[in-house]
């Protein structure tokens, strides 16, 4: 069986910066497992500015930050198109690779599997199954990786940071969203973003709930509720943003103790198992790429005192 000092699952900002910092601290035997064809994680398809490696926000685009990370980690043992399928009962990893399924053991395993937005099903939004309903993640990949233009008059659901990232993606597409709709008053992101949205010509509707999505083959309208009143809004797409969920496939079966959709960790990133750590957005709070990278460097310090 393959054995390594450190195995990192996930080659996004958190995983790569952990690997880089560990290697700079002199750790030799590090392997990064990345299920996608390339590393870089979610910033690869956030084609707008706002990214920075050493602080929360900066003037880099997501793909530029991803490329910088890829360049800095070129010399490391990074296995792309390689999926960690799960833990075995004796604490090793079952790993899918181009050669079939192999088992890998490690002195320390680091979960850096990141996060995703809640789906339409998880939000229990009724109505029809239609083309044109997607998360920001899917939209940005369709736009920035495939060059698609999935709709012309979408509605954006949510008012978290990512909702404004969606707004910028729409602007890149030269698409003007019909409105942004949020269940609370403008929440996770600062309120000046809402002014920004209005400046870009998008109405922001607060304290409104998406009830259902209607149409025949593509989206034709959404049904919303505001202060007990039901109304319909014409649109041709629905972008469901935010409500991030930790990518939990490796621990949700109870292998690691978890609560509120995230593994329980100590201040030093230790999970409920002694040789397993978790870092970055898998911890359940959505952080910027810069913050995830800082966490990776902190974890490397914990592991190389």
């Amino acid at each position: 069986m393959e054995h390594h000092d450190i195995v990192i699952i996930g080659g996004g900002p958190a995983g790569l910066s952990t690997a880089l910092a560990l290697s700079q601290a002199g750790v030799k035997d590090i392997v990064v497992l990345e299920r996608e064809a390339e590393t870089g994680g979610i910033p690869r398809h956030c084609g707008h500015m706002g990214f920075a490696p050493y602080k929360n926000f900066g003037l880099m685009t997501g793909p530029n930050l991803a490329r910088q990370l890829q360049d800095q980690t070129k010399h490391l043992d990074i296995r792309t198109a390689t999926t960690a399928l799960g833990f075995t009962l004796h604490g090793t990893l079952r790993v899918h690779s181009a050669n079939g399924i192999i088992e890998i053991s490690a002195n320390k395993i680091i979960l850096a599997t990141g996060t995703r937005e809640s789906s339409r099903a998880a939000r229990l939004v009724g109505g029809n199954k239609l083309k044109g309903i997607m998360n920001t993640g899917e939209l940005q990949q369709r736009v920035y990786l495939n060059g698609e233009r999935p709709f012309k008059r979408p509605v954006i659901i949510g008012s978290e940071w990512v909702s404004y990232s969606t707004l910028l993606t729409c602007r890149h597409l030269q698409v003007k969203p019909v409105m942004m709709l949020t269940e609370t008053s403008v929440n996770a992101a600062p309120s000046y973003f809402a002014y920004g949205a209005r400046l870009l010509g998008t109405k922001v509707l607060q304290h409104a709930k998406l009830i259902a999505i209607h149409g025949k083959t593509t989206v034709e309208a959404i049904e919303i509720e505001q202060s007990g009143r039901i109304g319909m809004v014409d649109c041709d797409g629905v972008i469901l943003t935010g409500r991030f969920r930790s990518e939990d496939a490796l621990y949700s079966n109870g292998y690691l103790e978890h609560e509120d959709h995230a593994p329980k960790v100590t201040d030093s990133f230790k999970t409920s198992r002694p040789n397993i750590y978790a870092v970055g957005n898998v911890l359940g709070h959505l952080e910027t790429a810069g913050r995830c990278m800082a966490q990776g460097r902190d974890l490397a310090k914990v592991l190389t005192p």
Binding site: R116, S119, R120, A121, M134, N135, E138, Q141, L145, E148
Partner: peptide
């Protein structure tokens, strides 16, 4: 579980 967040564009 992700309902296409990660893969829908690649699947298309």
């Amino acid at each position: 579980r992700c309902q296409g967040f990660y893969c829908a564009a690649h699947v298309s």
